[in-house]
Amino acid sequence: MAETDFDLGVVTAPSGVLVLGMASWIDHWSQLGQPLSERASAVASIGGGHVQDWMCELVAVPAADDKALMVRAGTTTSPFDGGPTIAVLEIDLGLPWAGTAGNEPIILGDLPVDRCGMVLGDAVALDSWTGDSHPSTDGLADVTYWGGYAEAAHLQYGGELIPQHGSHVRGWLDLPPDDAEKIVDALKAWEGDQQGRGVMVAVDEHTDFHRFNRASWTHPLRIGAIEVAGCPVLGINWDNGDHSMRHRGERRFGQVYPVTLQPSPEGQTMMRWTIPPHAPVCDGPD
């Protein structure tokens, strides 16, 4: 059962096609053949559906091209940390319901929960998505560090306290690449004790993938709202521990969840992705 409803914001679909896809692979579609938008448009033209190519997966549906589309989530309690985690994702598509007379849901397919998150946005806009392996889109990068010797490193190198999903790291945001590289080299070479132990260091260039992750750092459900090609797009993250307990193995282990079209209470069409609550595995009686 979903316990709490969250308004997650809005997306738009000026191309008339809305996509929910795996964040790890958004920028890989064109490397495998047709661009994402062409594949998404093909299934949207027949009412919507699921597309898979290698590790890339998405669901695409027709949507209104002239209005903001509201996105909501129902949550359940995470078995990992007891916090809220997404159980139902609902997206208003801005179109009147034209489904079955009995208002039965229309099954579009299913999707796994990507360990690196999901992306919801306009099909054409997502053709320009920059993934983790792309260079920075604005020439800037973020550097963070953490570990048992982080405070000692801070005394020598500085770095602001940066909140990330309820915890904190030290670091610098929006650095030119040369400055970021110098800091990373210095922190990696720094030794906090006589055994040579130091800190963990990460450098993240400003790709769309990193921007949505960064935007999600302070959201209770790890939702990152960004713009891609001028369109508002939502990135949807999961806690690593929660993902391991509920979704680990993804499609390879049958951890996939249904995506449907169904009518809203107002008679409009909405897309729903339903993720059942965690069910512990029982070994049976002794």
Rank of each mutant, 00 (worst) to 15 (best):
G16V: 07
L18G: 08
L20F: 08
M22G: 12
M22R: 11
S24Q: 13
D27W: 10
G33E: 00
L36K: 01
V43W: 10
A44Q: 04
A44R: 05
I46F: 07
G48K: 06
Q52C: 09
W54T: 06
M55C: 05
M55P: 13
E57N: 11
P62L: 02
A63G: 06
A64F: 13
L69D: 04
A73K: 07
G74A: 12
T75I: 12
T76Q: 14
T76G: 15
T76E: 14
G83D: 13
G83L: 13
G83F: 10
T85H: 11
I86C: 02
A87N: 11
V88T: 14
V88I: 13
W97D: 10
A98P: 11
T100G: 15
P105H: 08
I107S: 12
G109W: 09
V113R: 07
D114A: 12
R115L: 11
M118I: 12
V119T: 13
L120E: 07
D122P: 15
D122H: 12
V124T: 13
A125R: 05
L126V: 07
S128H: 09
W129A: 01
D132R: 10
S133E: 10
H134G: 00
D142S: 03
D142M: 01
T144N: 00
T144H: 00
A150V: 12
E151R: 12
H154P: 03
Y157E: 01
G159K: 03
E160L: 04
L161I: 15
L161W: 14
I162G: 00
P163H: 04
P163D: 07
H168M: 07
H168G: 01
H168F: 15
H168L: 03
V169A: 00
G171P: 11
W172V: 10
D174Y: 09
P176H: 11
D179V: 15
E181V: 10
V184C: 03
G192T: 07
Q194P: 03
Q194C: 05
R197W: 06
V199I: 05
V201K: 00
E205M: 05
R211S: 10
R211F: 04
T218N: 11
E227F: 12
C231K: 03
C231P: 09
G241D: 04
H243I: 05
R246F: 07
R246P: 12
R248D: 14
R251L: 11
R251W: 14
R251M: 06
R251N: 08
F253S: 05
G254C: 08
V256G: 01
Y257W: 14
P258D: 08
Q262M: 08
S264E: 11
T269C: 09
I275W: 03
A279Y: 05
A279V: 15
C282F: 13
C282Q: 10
C282R: 08
G284M: 10
D286P: 15
